[in-house]
Design a protein around this nucleic acid. Structure first.
Length: 709
DNA sequence: AGCACGCCGACT
DNA sequence: GTCGGCGTGCTC
């Protein structure tokens, strides 16, 4: 019995495939093991996800060739979680399963081509032909991956010539074990935190903690709404309660920097029972963390979104902090959203889920309030506020009032942070004579001017072009820069404050994590007193200044998206976190040409209630989440015509399957690739799941799915 | 992701 | 005339 096995491969395949299970493997077959099986012409390692005797989908099945594990690598709960996630996002089930495992040494190796001694001699002796010699001299410097020659870096014939050199014995392939360079974790600043004492008697925190405790064994979703320190205190107490009854807690935080105060609190309050995962751990440390989890009957494990897949057999509580942070969504590799995953895991394990934020998503806030699980932890604290400065009558990039405040702050010895809305010098060039705007030849979007590197760069595909000396269309002498970026801001500041020590913070001036950290250290130490950055700066933890300036955040509204208002609210509140809480003279200024916009006004005051009131009304009127479940489906690949046709087919299928409403198709771009996007709405997430399941299989194209409900 | 099958330009 | 480029489609 049980003669069939379903296998999910870590490839761009959404479904699992059915194989026959030969007699000799039946005893050893169980879900969660890795297996070898033929797929097309090759043999691939996949995950056995189900053993059954249902009627097979095809007459002649291929057999399972081998079972690689003697015990399940992936527990049943994680199989189910990854299955549901892959279904929701139409991403690879096997791909999600692979991301549930620690990276194995085998997957860290890569193939390189290198010159043999004979090859070296041939190169030196000049007996190689032109192309052969070119490739051989490249390899003489260092080993290169065969893929390197497939790309356009060398001539088109690269792979063929490489194959010839290989046959002649001048080149050999070598397996290289990848060693990933890791740096030491920056030490946590030793501020003694006394969380437990600070808020011990606080009735709000008390109420939240006991509400969660009362939900033990039920997958209730709470929203802890309030400032970081109070949330931290409440989390800590909830976690301690869960550990006290011998169960585990899972704490998910956004990719960039968990607050030092929180890790300190967990570490000092729980010692060995607090396990931290983050991107800088070595494989060895990762293994060590897993061993500790196996050994500790009750522990809290804190990590970014991939920690969602850790096996935690005694799970008692899940927390997702900064729940409106989009880095909970994984977009490279198999797509999944850790917030949706946390909801599924909480349901599956029947444990409460706490979402936390001081600027939560409209959906979460509405749901928590509707279910009576909104825990308001604001505790009479006043949020940081920014003064609004109208720039509609200002001729210059930086309003005069702004320059005055910066000057005053610098004279008073305060540090200043300025958030510019975009990268580069100008978002496009403009010919005042004929209206010409230089566009990217590949994707038609306007090219950004970078003055420092004196080039035009496409924001979509990275294509570069030289800056034209005159208008290529009408010969006009000047092309005007429009849409000021951080380089222009930096230039203005340098002119206005020649004595100040000033730095720009963007991907160009600080390309690596190391250089970014160095720059921030110099700012923190006072070596730099004026820092101008792109939104990238708002995503660095621990930036503190006495004067914080938000320059024209309204550009975030340019995206036609039902979440544009929410994104702007979250982004403004995030930038205002740079206000130094220990500086009594600290202030913030928001320069905008939309001084009366309700979201800008609410965000500047930190008045979430006002923001939510307006936003929920807009969502209700137009039938957006939380009043409907919504999917954005993008199709990729092929020419515009074919894509358009496929989108029409998909739209028809979605309609036939019962979608309440379909918007689009609309053209979309990502990383220089063109695609089309459809938006489908349905009454609930469950109904939308069914509709997508019916409709998506019918369309042959690369798809990406985003979901909101 | 591979790997195959399918149609248009430079070569033994 | 073919060799071979990569565009699209399939893998139980």
């Amino acid at each position: 019995m049980s003669p069939y096995a379903d296998v999910a491969f870590p490839l761009a395949l959404t479904q699992a495939y059915t194989y026959s299970l030969p007699e000799e493997w039946r005893a050893a077959a169980f879900p969660g093991a890795r297996v070898r099986a033929a797929l097309g012409r090759r043999t691939v390692t996949g995950f056995l996800v189900r053993v059954h005797d249902d009627p097979p989908p095809a007459a002649d099945l291929k057999p399972i060739l081998a079972i690689l594990d003697a015990e399940p690598l992936v527990p049943a709960a994680i199989l189910e979680l990854t299955r549901r996630l892959s279904r929701r996002y139409h991403s690879s089930w096997g791909g999600l399963l692979r991301s549930a495992l620690p990276p194995s040494p085998g997957e860290r190796s890569s193939v390189r081509a290198g010159l043999t001694p004979a090859g070296r001699a041939a190169l030196a002796g000049g007996s190689l032909s032109g192309e052969e010699a070119r490739i051989a001299s490249l390899l003489a410097e260092r080993d290169l991956s065969p893929l390197h020659f497939k790309r356009k870096t060398v001539a088109k014939s690269g792979p063929a010539v490489l194959a010839r050199l290989l046959r002649k014995g001048f080149v050999e392939t070598r397996i290289v074990e990848k060693t990933v360079k890791r740096r030491a974790i920056p030490p946590v600043p030793a501020n003694p935190v006394q969380l437990d004492l600070d808020f011990a008697a606080d009735p709000e925190v008390e109420k939240a903690v006991s509400a969660v405790a009362a939900s033990a064994g039920r997958p209730d979703i709470f929203l802890f709404f309030g400032p970081g320190p109070r949330r931290t205190s409440a989390y800590f107490r909830c976690v301690r309660d869960v550990l006290a009854i011998g169960r585990q807690a899972l704490f998910l935080y956004p990719e960039i920097g968990m607050s030092p105060a929180l890790s300190e609190a967990f570490a000092s309050g729980l010692g060995e029972r607090a396990v931290f995962l983050h991107s800088r751990l070595t494989d060895r440390e990762r293994e060590e963390a897993r061993r500790r989890l196996d050994a500790e009957p009750a522990a809290v494990v804190a990590g970014p979104r991939s920690a969602l897949f850790l096996p935690l057999p005694r799970l008692g509580l899940i927390i997702v902090d900064e729940e409106s942070d989009e880095s909970h969504l994984q977009s490279d590799g198999p797509v999944f959203d850790a917030r949706a995953g946390a909801r599924m895991r909480a349901e599956e394990a029947r444990v409460p889920l706490i979402l936390g934020s001081d600027a939560p998503t409209v959906e979460s806030y509405a749901r928590a309030r509707g279910e009576g699980r909104l825990c308001d932890l604001s505790g009479g604290t006043t949020p940081a506020a920014a003064a609004i400065l109208d720039d509609r009558r200002e001729p210059e990039l930086l309003a005069r009032g702004l320059l005055e405040r910066i000057g005053k702050a610098l004279r008073a010895g305060l540090k200043v942070v300025l958030f510019a809305p975009r990268k580069g010098y100008a978002s496009f060039l403009f010919c005042p004579r004929c209206g010409f705007i230089p566009k990217c030849p590949r994707c038609e979007s306007a090219l950004t001017l970078y003055r420092r590197s004196r080039s035009l760069v496409c924001r979509n595909c990275g294509e570069t072009a030289p800056v034209p000396a005159a208008c290529p269309r009408c010969g006009g002498k000047v092309l005007e820069p429009r849409g000021a970026g951080v380089e222009a801001v930096e230039e203005e500041l340098r002119r206005a404050f020649p004595g100040a020590s000033l730095a720009a913070f963007d991907r160009e001036s600080a390309p690596t994590r190391e250089s970014r950290e160095r720059l921030l250290e110099r700012f923190a130490s006072g070596a730099i007193d004026l820092l101008a950055g792109t939104p990238l700066l708002a995503h660095q933890p621990g930036v503190r200044a006495g004067l914080v300036i938000l320059l024209n955040p309204e550009h975030l509204l340019a995206f036609s998206d039902f979440r544009a208002g929410q994104r702007m609210y979250v982004e403004i509140r995030r930038m205002l976190k740079a206000l130094d809480p220990g500086e009594p003279r600290a202030e913030a200024v928001l320069q905008t040409s939309l001084p009366d916009h309700p979201v800008i006004r609410a965000a500047a005051r930190g008045d979430y209630g006002a923001f939510f009131g307006g936003e929920i009304e807009f969502r209700r009127m137009l039938g957006y989440p939380p009043f409907a479940a919504l999917a954005e489906i993008a199709l990729w690949g092929g020419d515009a015509r074919a894509l358009e046709a496929k989108a029409e087919v998909l739209a028809a299928r979605l309609r036939a399957a019962g979608a309440a409403e379909i918007l689009g198709p609309a053209a979309v771009q990502s990383k220089g690739k063109k695609g089309v996007q459809l938006v489908a709405k349905a009454a609930s997430a469950g109904i939308l799941d069914e509709i997508l399941g019916d409709a998506l299989g019918a369309v042959r194209a690369r798809k990406t799915v985003a979901r909101y409900d």
